[in-house]
Design a protein around this nucleic acid. Structure first.
Length: 697
DNA sequence: GAGCACTGC
């Protein structure tokens, strides 16, 4: 992880919110166009661009793109690839004839911020020559936009309208080494397009370790003659400083104790410089933050250790924006106060914190895992991969030479997997299989994924899609149901439930429930207090609807009382605003496909309005039905999996446990818990999913 | 009576 140390373009210490965004292009520090060199000399935009490491490779890169179909660009954050390559292509004629370069990003903030940065560099308004396209937000001009930043999910969606990507002479897939689900799908898709469009150029931006994998995936040369390769790799030297990596001599039994001791040792023995600690989750991090603070306080009271003050801060995505921003603020004079940030993996990929000199790596990460047999997704703590560990270490070398303390032995490091398991190998594949079907990919089992999706996950996904009525007996997309389901920007279970709700006359209510379930972090306290204040005895889905309706009665028609109302009921206002936005988008899709938005509450013919709503939910989530057992637990009907009711469910407060329930999802902690649960009549299962449940007397 | 890594359409 060492690289050249003789570059001089380190920036000054200003930090602001734009540091939230982990971008290359030299702006990781100030986000302003004018960033300041150590000589305090302000440079013109042109001078800044020329100073970026990638500039020296400009000609070579353009040459490789002329002579290859695919170019893999390897370069650290900071080398300028994301902001500069599209401009080089634009300047050298690739966008002539009203053509556009597409650059995909795994995250929406990144797409927007890079587009904004590049527009500024080109002295243009955003949305003219340079634009972006992300969910809920788009700034592009059909006529003028030549460089378009977008999320990878958005480009997949565009392919439904234009399968050959005919607008684009070049597609650049950025941050491909992160191997997100959407990136992996996109890699397979663009390779397929390249087979039909020899003129389509692909640029993959990747970290060092994966470059060869990407090259081989796109290389069409079947001979041994390397001069006939159709893919090439170019390495850009980065701007990172060397990082000294330290390992434990003996493995630790308790990585949390070792983390605490290591942080205190660094603080007492090492020169000024901020510390970044990698742990696995919220609870762990909050505890560690107070332990570190307590230890430092204690030793200062005894007048021992380092007299420097500390500013210990947590960082994880569940934190409110205001608290997240504190991580990027200067703590004060770095000689007098040391900032210690305790973070999840969010600090490995999504954000860059300035001024970090020491990294403490626990060696663990919490990731999503999927069990195709039970169909359940859960979160598990696992050791990191080598590339992940190197990425973490690199966070210490952004401003000057740094140190990384790995809380495991060097031997253990060599035994770690080189790469993390790509998301596609640990996810429920039903949503992406449906999208691929809609893109005309018939033989899913033979789709060319860069890393193969597990066959059992594929089979399970096909089975669920068939059960939902999206695929017919021949595995083809049904008309119009399957096509409509693929278009909706939610998982197929949700789109099925929405389509069904029109038939049952309750689409207005079901849209609200779908939107509520699609937004995270609605409740601001642990026990979900508001659920009980808005309890509906049939269960959580209807209680969520009740909360949504109560919220909109406060927020609609220009009323301004929604904020205080949210605060009073311990509901996250930002999350509710997003619910409204998601619901609006879903309703727009309903109008597009002539799905009537009707209410069952105003329909006098419906005696119990909760019944059509609950039946609609079953039509999408019929796999998640469970039956009460004598010991108070539940057993899934499908594969006899033992589950418990989560204490935040409103059904927990009932005197008697309901016999039959439907749950939205499962979380595995001390036990396996069902979350968002609704009481059902088992007869409805046969009614709504006859192909899945057979009636037995 | 528990507590949720990170994203995206």
């Amino acid at each position: 992880m060492t690289s050249n140390t003789n570059n001089s373009n380190y920036s000054n210490g200003n930090t602001n919110i734009s540091s939230l965004l982990d971008r290359d292009g030299g702006d990781t520090n100030s986000g302003n166009v004018d960033f300041i060199f150590n000589s305090n000399q302000r440079l013109s935009i042109t001078q800044q661009r020329i100073a970026l490491p990638i500039y020296q490779y400009r000609k070579h890169l353009l040459y490789l793109l002329e002579t290859n179909q695919t170019v893999v660009v390897v370069g650290n954050t900071g080398c300028g690839k994301t902001t500069q390559i599209p401009q080089y292509l634009h300047e050298s004629g690739w966008t002539d004839g009203y053509r556009t370069i597409a650059i995909t990003q795994p995250r929406r903030v990144a797409a927007i911020s890079v587009a904004s940065r590049v527009a500024t560099e080109m002295n243009e308004e955003l949305g003219h020559t340079v634009g972006y396209s992300v969910r809920f937000d788009e700034k592009v001009s059909a006529e003028h936009t030549r460089i378009k930043y977008m999320t990878d999910g958005m480009l997949i969606r565009e392919m439904m309208l234009d399968p050959l990507l005919s607008k684009y002479p070049v597609v650049m897939i950025d941050e491909a080494h992160e191997r997100s689900l959407a990136t992996d799908v996109l890699l397979g898709l663009v390779k397929k397009v390249q087979g039909r469009r020899k003129d389509l150029k692909i640029i993959i931006s990747s970290a060092t370790m994966d470059a060869e994998l990407f090259k081989q995936f796109f290389n069409n040369n079947i001979t041994n003659d390397k001069s006939k390769d159709t893919a090439a790799i170019i390495s850009i030297e980065g701007t990172n400083y060397p990082v000294d990596v330290h390992y434990l001599e003996q493995p630790t039994l308790n990585y949390l104790d070792t983390t605490l001791n290591t942080v205190i040792d660094i603080h007492n023995l090492q020169p000024p410089g901020d510390i970044l600690v990698f742990l696995t989750g919220q609870e762990e991090i909050d505890k560690m933050v107070s332990s570190i603070q307590d230890r430092v306080d204690a030793q200062q009271q005894q007048q021992k250790g380092n007299k420097m003050k500390v500013n210990v801060l947590p960082m994880y995505s569940g934190l409110s924006i205001n608290k997240q921003i504190r991580v990027f603020e200067k703590s004060g004079d770095p000689r007098k106060i040391r900032k210690i940030v305790v973070a999840t993996n969010i600090a490995e990929t999504s954000i860059t914190i300035d001024g970090i000199v020491y990294v403490v790596d626990s060696g663990f990460v919490k990731i999503k895992s999927y069990n195709p047999t039970s169909g359940l997704e859960s979160l598990v703590v696992v050791p990191t991969s080598q590339s992940s560990a190197d990425q973490r270490a690199g966070r210490a070398g952004r401003n000057r030479a740094g140190k990384c303390y790995r809380l495991y032995t060097q031997d253990a490091f060599t035994k770690l997997p080189v790469h993390s398991i790509p998301e596609i190998q640990r996810s429920n594949l039903a949503p992406i299989i449906l999208q691929l079907k809609a893109l005309g990919i018939d033989n899913i089992l033979h789709f060319d994924f860069i890393s193969p999706a597990p066959t059992i996950s594929l089979v399970r996904a096909l089975e669920v899609l068939y059960g939902l009525g999206a695929l017919n007996d021949n595995g083809q997309l049904t008309q119009p149901t399957g096509h409509i389901m693929a278009e909706f920007p939610v998982d197929p279970s949700f789109s099925k439930m929405i389509i069904q709700s029109e038939v049952l006359g309750c689409s207005k209510e079901v849209l609200s429930i779908a939107a509520m379930l699609n937004v995270q972090g609605i409740f601001t306290n642990h026990n979900h207090k508001a659920r009980r204040e808005f309890i509906v005895k049939e269960g959580d889905h209807l209680s969520l609807l009740n909360i949504y309706n109560a919220y909109t009665s406060k927020s609609s028609n220009g009323k301004t009382s929604a904020g205080p109302w949210c605060h009073e009921h311990q509901i996250n206002h930002k999350a509710m605003q997003r619910v409204v936005q998601v619901r609006k988008q879903l309703e727009a899709y309903c109008h597009k496909y002539s799905i009537k938005v009707v209410s069952c509450l105003t329909n006098a013919a419906i005696k119990d309005a909760t019944i059509p709503i609950r039946k609609s939910i079953i039509s999408g989530f019929f796999t998640n039905a469970a039956h009460l057992q004598p010991d108070g637990s539940y057993m899934t009907i499908r594969d006899k999996h033992k589950l418990f009711m989560h204490p935040t469910s409103v059904l927990c407060s009932l005197a008697n446990s309901p016999e039959w329930v439907l749950f939205h999802d499962v979380t595995i902690t001390t036990k396996e818990y069902m979350k968002d649960i609704t009481i059902i009549d088992p007869k409805w299962l046969y009614e709504m999913a006859p192909h899945f449940y057979v009636y037995e007397k």
